[in-house]
């Protein structure tokens, strides 16, 4: 196993771990804000939850991007060919 593979594995792990921090914080804030909004206006709960889901998906996309990058590094690393 050469050093390139080692670096790839380490960077994939780092990508997933660091890429999870930001979306986790962001999702927490988004859910908290949505909860507050629903508590204030229960009648618009459906709109808020729909928007929340879309937003969560958007935020989660960032983590997924990191996961995809990690998977690319692990399984489809062009430098390792």
């Amino acid at each position: 196993m050469n050093w390139l593979a080692c670096v790839s594995i380490v960077s994939a792990a780092m990508a997933v771990s660091f890429g999870a921090i930001g979306p986790a914080l962001a999702e927490g804030r988004a859910v908290a804000a949505a909860m507050e909004a629903i508590a204030r206006q229960p009648e618009s709960a459906s709109t808020i939850s729909r928007t929340l889901f879309v937003g969560l998906a958007m935020i989660e996309t960032m983590a997924i991007y990191c996961l995809v990058i990690a998977l690319l590094l692990l399984f489809a690393n062009p430098l390792l060919k």
Binding site: A57, E60, T61, I64, Y65, L67, V68, L71
Partner: peptide, 10 residues
């Protein structure tokens, strides 16, 4: 593309 793929694949 990547969102759907990443979620389901993961």
């Amino acid at each position: 593309l990547v969102r759907l793929f990443g979620n389901v694949m993961s």
